[in-house]
C-alpha cells in the first residue's frame, strides 16, 4: 500500500488523476453544502432563469427548467460513484470466484464456466445492459443489475488466465504437496497473487462503470428524472444544440473529468504493478 502511494504521488499523471478523482469524490460527498443551489437536485422549476448561458450566478448555466447545472452535476457525481461502488463490489467477487474455479479445477467445471463467460462476453457490453434494462424497469437498482451482469465476465477472464499461469508455480505445487485444500489454494494462495492485477483493473473500471451508466441513462434507460444524472443531462440537451451548448458540453465534460481521473490512476498503477502487461 505504501509503495502504491509513493508511486502515485511521484508521477505527474497519477497526481493529476488523484486531483480529479479527489474533486469528484469531494463534490459528491459535500454536494449538499457546496452546491450553489442544492434544492436544484430535485424537481425544481424556475422558468425565469431557464436555459441561461454560464454567468456569475450560474457558472455552468441553467437547464431548460431553470435549474443550476453545476449543482446538478455535483449531485449526479454522487449517483455515479454509488453506482460504481455497488457494481464493482458485486461483480468483482463473482467474476473472481468463477475465474478461480474455472482456472484451478479444469475439466468440466472449466469448460462450463468459461463457456458461460463467453456467452456474456459475446453480447456487446452496452447491448446486454440495454436488453436487461429494457426488460426490467429503468430504476437505479436495475441499472446496477444490468451493468453488473455485463461486468463480471471480464474479471472471470482475467482471473482465469492468471490462475492457469499460477497453478503450475512452485508455491502452489508446494501447497498441494503438503495437502492444502483446494479452497485454501484458490483463495489463500492464488488469489493474493492476482490482487495487483485485479486492483488495477478495478481502478480503471471504476471510470468505465461511470461511463457505461451514463450511456444507459443517455439512452433514457438509466436513472430517471428528476434524479440528476450526467447521461440524461447530455441527452436532454441535444435537442437544444447548437444554441444552448452548455446543456450538453458541461455534463459531457463532467463525465470526461471523472473517467479520465480514474483512468490516469489506473494507468500508472498498471504500469508499475504489472510491468509485463
Amino acid at each position: 500500500m505504501k509503495r502504491a502511494a509513493t508511486i502515485l504521488l511521484g508521477n505527474p499523471l497519477s497526481c493529476l488523476g488523484l486531483i480529479l478523482v479527489g474533486f469528484v469524490v469531494l463534490t459528491a460527498l459535500l454536494a449538499d453544502f457546496i452546491a450553489p443551489y442544492p434544492e436544484h437536485a430535485g424537481a425544481v422549476v424556475d422558468f425565469l432563469n431557464a436555459n441561461k448561458p454560464p454567468s456569475s450566478d450560474y457558472w455552468l448555466g441553467t437547464d431548460v427548467v431553470g435549474r443550476d447545472q453545476l449543482s446538478r452535476i455535483f449531485f449526479a457525481y454522487r449517483i455515479s460513484l454509488i453506482l460504481g461502488v455497488v457494481v464493482l463490489t458485486i461483480s468483482v467477487p463473482i467474476g473472481v470466484t468463477v475465474g478461480l474455479l474455472a482456472g484451478y479445477l479444469s475439466g468440466w467445471t472449466e469448460y462450463l464456466l468459461m463457456r458461460i463467460t463467453d456467452v456474456f462476453l459475446s453480447i456487446p457490453p452496452l447491448v446486454l445492459a440495454l436488453a436487461i434494462m429494457g426488460l426490467l424497469e429503468p430504476t437505479l437498482i436495475n441499472g446496477m443489475i444490468a451493468v453488473t451482469a455485463m461486468w463480471w465476465p471480464w474479471y472471470a477472464r482475467l482471473v482465469y488466465n492468471i490462475t492457469r499461469a499460477e497453478k503450475v508455480e512452485g508455491y502452489v505445487l508446494a501447497a498441494e504437496v503438503i495437502g492444502a485444500g483446494k479452497v485454501h489454494i484458490m483463495f489463500r494462495e492464488i488469489l493474493p497473487n492476482s490482487l495487483p492485477a485485479i486492483i488495477t483493473k478495478m481502478t480503471l473500471d471504476f471510470g468505465f462503470v461511470i461511463l457505461i451508466a451514463s450511456s444507459l441513462s443517455f439512452l433514457g434507460l438509466g436513472v430517471q428524472a428528476p434524479t440528476p444524472d450526467l447521461g440524461s443531462m447530455v441527452s436532454d440537451g441535444t435537442r437544444y444544440l447548437p444554441d444552448s451548448w452548455w446543456l450538453t458540453v458541461f455534463p459531457g465534460l463532467a463525465i470526461l473529468i471523472a473517467v479520465f481521473g480514474f483512468n490516469l490512476i489506473g494507468d500508472v498503477l498498471r504500469e508499475v504493478l504489472e510491468p509485463d502487461l
Binding site: 461511463l211 450511456s215 443517455f218 447521461g231 447548437p242 458540453v249 459531457g252 479520465f260 483512468n263
Partner: peptide, 21 residues
C-alpha cells in the same frame, strides 16, 4: 498516452456532441 487516455475517457455521445459542435 495522454491523448488516447482522453479518448477512452468519454462515451461516444460526448465526442459526438463535441465533434458536431
Amino acid at each position: 498516452r495522454i491523448i488516447t487516455l482522453l479518448t477512452v475517457s468519454a462515451p461516444a455521445f460526448v465526442w459526438a456532441v463535441i465533434l458536431v459542435l
